[in-house]
């Protein structure tokens, strides 16, 4: 860990003015700083700026960026109306980490690609232009969708996958004023700038996440991993499916663990709208969602795994038998 200056900000304005890397829960940032994958010169502690309330906003819910994962998952309103969000948070990390990690910080979690963590090996995300060691290496956990020549890292989190499926909105403040981004559009695909994980600009601060009115749909988060608990997703599926009698009125489905961002495809979802649920329909949907999926050897299995998991989750969400 390199030396840094430490400043405790007492409000958001002071944090924005301080200039430095924001630290909230610190559960990922300090992990990376200890390994010198991250080497900020200045830390601005935003744990005391407020932004830690969960409050109704219209029919939706406004979640402060400093709300701890555990509090968000346990919030009675979230449990009742956005159970997908509770489920996704509870599927992630450990209770200890969820008690500390924040809503904003979780969105900014960095990849778990082992080469990103290994300073001895090339990694374009860590050191632009140095190369990608994951291709041809151990890429079991890495991307099958939206990857580039430069990078096949995945976004490793769970909560943001649910936020994408729930059509949440990320609210941001910064030197150039406040703005919003859809949760599904917050993270970036690597292209030739894999060092940029998100569309957050330097100096900007996530202030809150807004959940729209609940759909009343059946919400499921299914996470598939190598250990039953306390492990990152190989594939996860977040689904919010609203039925109308025997047909699907609206389905939103996001995949985790397969790309540098939660993977959603509106045109694939359109296939489901107004259709009666069937194995064939879900198969077509999964094929469309996974169109262009490419394995890198070790992670080839993720393509059939994602397909099967999507079909199982949609089957369950539409009242069928997952088997």
């Amino acid at each position: 860990m390199r030396p840094f200056t430490y400043t405790r900000a007492e409000d958001a304005a002071a944090a924005l003015a301080a200039g430095g890397r924001f630290i909230a829960g610190g559960t990922n940032l300090l992990d990376l700083m200890k390994l010198q994958v991250e080497t900020p010169d200045a830390l601005v502690d935003i744990n005391h700026v407020g932004l830690d309330a969960i409050a109704p906003e219209g029919e939706g819910l406004l979640v402060g960026a400093l709300v701890r994962n555990a509090d968000l998952a346990a919030d009675p309103r979230v449990r009742r109306d956005w159970p997908l969000l509770s489920r996704a948070i509870l599927a992630g990390a450990s209770a200890q980490i969820r008690n500390r990690a924040t809503t904003g910080g979780n969105l900014l979690q960095r990849t778990r690609c082992p080469y990103f963590y290994d300073l001895d090996t090339p990694c374009n995300k860590r050191q632009p232009g140095s190369g990608c060691s994951a291709q041809g290496g151990f890429n079991r956990t890495l991307a099958i969708l939206g990857a580039s020549e430069a990078c096949i890292a995945t976004f490793p989190g769970d909560m943001p996958v649910a936020l994408a499926a729930l059509d949440a909105e990320i609210r941001i403040d910064g030197p150039n004023g406040a703005r919003t981004l859809p949760a599904a559009g917050f993270h970036r695909l690597p292209g030739d700038t894999p060092e940029r994980d998100t569309n957050l600009e330097p100096g900007e601060l996530i202030t809150s996440v807004a959940l729209p009115a609940p759909t009343g749909g059946r919400q499921i988060y299914r996470k598939v991993r190598d250990r039953r608990s306390f492990a990152f997703a190989l594939v996860s599926v977040a689904a919010d499916v609203v039925m109308d009698g025997g047909t699907i009125r609206q389905a939103r489905v996001a995949l985790g663990g397969v790309a540098a961002r939660p993977w959603m495809l509106p045109e694939a979802q359109a296939l489901l709208d107004g259709q009666p649920p069937s194995a064939a329909l879900f198969g077509r949907f999964a094929d469309r969602l996974l169109a262009g999926a490419k394995g890198h050897g070790e992670n080839d299995f993720k393509i059939p795994l994602a397909r099967r998991t999507v079909i199982a989750v949609l089957t369950e969400a539409t009242g069928g038998d997952a088997a």
């Binding site: 430490y6 830390l43 450990s94």
Partner: peptide
């Protein structure tokens, strides 16, 4: 492990369990 991956450092912060390795004392 010093990286929040094992739980051996669990303490309670204001009544909640956390990994003491993943937070700075100064905070």
């Amino acid at each position: 492990c010093d990286h929040g991956q094992c739980g051996a450092c669990t303490v309670m912060l204001n009544g909640r369990r956390i990994n003491a390795c993943l937070t700075l004392a100064v905070m």
